[in-house]
Amino acid sequence: MSALKRLVCVQCPLGCKISVELSDTNRILSIVGNRCPRGEEYARDELENPKRVLTTSVRVLNGEYPLVSVKTNKPVPKSLIPELMKTIRNLKVEAPIECGSVLVEDVLGTGADLVATRTVRRAKG
């Protein structure tokens, strides 16, 4: 006996509808419906260890704006997101910040870096 599990890939806005065929011991037998390799990876992760890219923002000191937007540069385990948010909430970084610069390496041991997604210059005056 095998079971079918239906997923919608969240890796990009195309939202492929993926069907995963599972054996009675929950082993993945086949993955169909994905239009790219990221979909297969997503389906595997979603059943074994769901992951998401986390996007949020970090407090900036002496910047032209009070916040810099950030992302994890790869998906991180969904279960760690609340703890990651706690860590990020206590973070403060000094302007200037370049878009793409790493603010925290290997954040909480996830293997993902926390990366700035905009440039914030230093406040004038």
Binding site: T55, S69, K71, C99, T117, R118
Partner: peptide, 10 residues
Amino acid sequence: EELTGPEYAE
């Protein structure tokens, strides 16, 4: 490639 809004704008 997949970007955030601010990265796309930048």
